[in-house]
């Protein structure tokens, strides 16, 4: 027990020890901001992977580590789309995942936001046109926010979510 406390005291607080992210290049549309305002200080996200290379997942996971600690801003990951305020979709939509994505979107209660995370989700990246890929996320479900990058840094994701929620990360 003593060892655990000693270690924690030695490390101290690491939250915020990262380089601040770039502000989003494309500002969020006012209607989307209005919709996001409904969620106030609690924002539940469901992550759906429709064919990413898993780098975007790694960065979403990093968002929850003690350094970025997105939880402190009321952002948490919901275990089911039915508990979610927003869907974060990564990867180009593959032929095999198309139906699952639409189902998850249908199961998310309204009002909801859809965030396309990473270049693949926005414009299919280097998988564009391939037989196994049916197109970007917006071809299947309406997308509200786009966070570009391959993959976007966690700091950039936080910045984008903050912009979405009017400076409240």
């Amino acid at each position: 027990m003593f060892r655990i406390i000693k270690k924690s005291l030695k490390i101290g607080v690491v939250t915020g020890q990262y380089q601040k992210g770039e502000p989003a290049a494309v500002p969020v549309v006012p209607e989307v901001k209005k919709k996001a305002g409904l969620f106030k200080r609690s924002f539940a996200i469901r992550e759906v992977d429709t064919g990413s290379c898993n780098a975007c997942e790694m960065e979403m996971n990093a968002l929850m580590n003690p350094v970025y600690d997105a939880e402190q801003f009321g952002i948490h990951i919901a275990a089911s789309p039915r508990h979610a305020d927003a869907l974060i979709v990564t990867g180009p939509v593959t032929v095999n995942m198309e139906r699952a994505l639409k189902d998850a979107h249908k199961q998310t209660p309204d009002p909801k936001l859809v965030i396309a995370l990473g270049d693949c989700a926005i414009h299919c990246g280097m998988f564009k046109g391939c037989y196994a890929v049916t197109g970007p996320v917006e071809r299947h479900i309406p997308v509200d926010v786009r966070i570009p990058g391959c993959p976007p840094r966690p700091a950039d994701i936080l910045e984008a979510l903050s912009e979405l929620r009017n400076g409240r990360p």
Partner: peptide, 11 residues
């Protein structure tokens, strides 16, 4: 598996 088959080898 193979939900995420993106056709990498063909690409």
């Amino acid at each position: 598996h193979f939900w995420k088959h993106r056709g990498v080898e063909k690409l």
